[in-house]
Structure formats: structure tokens, C-alpha cells
């Protein structure tokens, strides 16, 4: 559990972090809460030569009502997302999902931006923000740009973030009273989901995203499309895996994962329709 040797710099602003990462290039990794990166380093599966600690960058930890959406600073800890009154009111699906990330220690250290930037398909918040149609704001040497969550995830632990870019804000549209449900299926409370479902529904409209059903978080557009066309919940849920390409692992075969996805999507939509 001893990482390979690395250098360490601490950034005090987003601009400084970006200038540092531009300088060190692909040898560098941002360190936020550290709950994804450090375990990989301790197992020597990740061996970055330079860690740029953004944990003390000021002003990136906030949750603000910005009119149509809620703006969440990338360094906001899961615990703050979980307990935010603003999110409880306007994006309860997200705060609820944040309460299911890891365990209490992880939620006190891990950040929403770290989780999204890590782009782990098994993490709860990438899929949840995807279901909610969030927009991610990233900052690079040339300034900021916005990326729709639906365009952000490119592959296993790969995103649209350039090596010299940093995620700074997550913008979540207000749910406006939509029904919602987060279904996390796992064997131990602290584990990643074997399959997870984040779903919301407002009359003929629905958004559904899947956790751990492929190399990226999956937007289940077939399900949402079927609901929009007036299909029954169970008919729509049968299409849960249309966009997915789930892997086999110790906990679940591909077949079992697809089965779970349809059961959980059905349960999620039923709960969201109440």
C-alpha cells in the first residue's frame, strides 16, 4: 500500500491548477477528495508523476440557485450535496443519490467534481447527473466551455476533458416537482452498484440513466422514448438495456445485469410515478 514516488504541488486557484497541469501534461493528475485516485495509486495501478492538489482551491465548493438550474461547484463534497436544502427542493434525486456514495467517510472527503471527472461508470453521480440532463462547465487555458453530460463520457474512465482542463461546475436543471427514484443494487451498503438506476418522471416525460451497465454511464433513451410515446412502465422497462453493454464480473454476468436493469428501471419508474 505504498504508492510509487510522485511529486506534489498544491494549487490555490483554478487558474493556477490549470497552469500547473499545462506545464506537466499527461504525467499530472488532479487530486481532489482522493477517494478514487489514491486507492489506485496505493495498488500502483496508477503512477502519476505529479499530483496537483486542488483540494484547497477556494470558491469551488458551493451550491447556488441560478434560476433555471442549480450550480454546484466541482469541489463540493458528497455530504454537502446530500444535505443541501436547495438540492432537496430542486434536485432531490441528486442529493439522495449523493447519500448513497460509499460510506460516511467517503462522503465527507469525496467531491462531486472528482467523481464526475473520474468518469467511472460504476459511480452514482455521473449517471445521476446524466439522467437529470446536467451540463458540466470545464475550464482550460483558453477559458471555460460547457459540455452536456450526454456528450461528456467517452469510454471507461475517459471523458471529454482535455489533459489541461479542469471540471469547475455542475449545472443541474431544476426538477420542477418531477417524481424520481434512485435504485442502487449492491451486496454491501458501501459498495459500488452492481446495477444502479437514476430516474425521474413528469407526466409523459422521463429521464433514466444506468450505473455500471457499460463502459460509461448509460442514458437509457429507449426507456424515456417509450414513456414519451405512452408505453406502460413494464414495456418501457423491458428496453432498459437497449443502450447498455454491460460487462461480466464477479458479482454479475452480462445476462444477470440486463435482467437487474429491467427490474430496477421498472421499480424506479413505478416509484417515480407515484
Amino acid at each position: 500500500m505504498i504508492p510509487a514516488a510522485f511529486d506534489y504541488k498544491r494549487a490555490s486557484s483554478a487558474a493556477e491548477a490549470i497552469s500547473l497541469v499545462s506545464q506537466y501534461g499527461s504525467d499530472a493528475k488532479f487530486l481532489a477528495g482522493g477517494h478514487s485516485l489514491l486507492p489506485l495509486m496505493k495498488l500502483r495501478l496508477a503512477q502519476p508523476a505529479m499530483l496537483i492538489d486542488i483540494g484547497r482551491v477556494k470558491d469551488l465548493s458551493y451550491i447556488k440557485d441560478a434560476g433555471n438550474h442549480i450550480a454546484i461547484g466541482a469541489l463540493t463534497r458528497h455530504m454537502d450535496v446530500e444535505t443541501s436544502k436547495v438540492l432537496h427542493e430542486h434536485a432531490p434525486l441528486l442529493s439522495h443519490a449523493a447519500g448513497h456514495v460509499g460510506d460516511a467517510q467517503v462522503r465527507h472527503r469525496g467531491t462531486i467534481g472528482g467523481s464526475i471527472a473520474h468518469a467511472d461508470p460504476a459511480s452514482d453521480l455521473p449517471a445521476t447527473t446524466l439522467a437529470l440532463g446536467a451540463t458540466y462547465v470545464v475550464q482550460g487555458p483558453k477559458g471555460q466551455r460547457e459540455i452536456a453530460a450526454a456528450n461528456f463520457y467517452k469510454g471507461f474512465l475517459e471523458s471529454d476533458l482535455a489533459a489541461d482542463e479542469m471540471l469547475v461546475e455542475i449545472r443541474v436543471p431544476k426538477m420542477q416537482g418531477a417524481g424520481w427514484s434512485f435504485q442502487k443494487f449492491n451486496r454491501r451498503a458501501q459498495d459500488w452498484a452492481i446495477v444502479g438506476v437514476a430516474a425521474w418522471r413528469r407526466k409523459g416525460e422521463a429521464g433514466v440513466a444506468l450505473v455500471n451497465m457499460g463502459s460509461t454511464p448509460i442514458l437509457a433513451t429507449s426507456v424515456a422514448g417509450a414513456i414519451a410515446k405512452g408505453a406502460s412502465i413494464s414495456d418501457a422497462a423491458a428496453m432498459a438495456s437497449n443502450e447498455a453493454d454491460p460487462q461480466s464480473d464477479l458479482n454479475a454476468s452480462t445476462e444477470y445485469r440486463k435482467h437487474l436493469a429491467s427490474v430496477l428501471v421498472r421499480r424506479a419508474l413505478e416509484a417515480a410515478s407515484k
Binding site: D103, R187, R188, A189, Q190, L250
Partner: peptide, 16 residues
């Protein structure tokens, strides 16, 4: 051994 870390070897916690 496919279960050589506590992420794969499922020792239950109090919550489980």
C-alpha cells in the same frame, strides 16, 4: 485470486 482486495472480498459491515 480474483478477490484480493476488500472491494472484491465482501467482508460484511455492520450495515449489511
Amino acid at each position: 485470486l480474483k478477490t484480493s482486495t476488500l472491494a472484491e472480498y465482501l467482508v460484511p459491515a455492520a450495515s449489511d
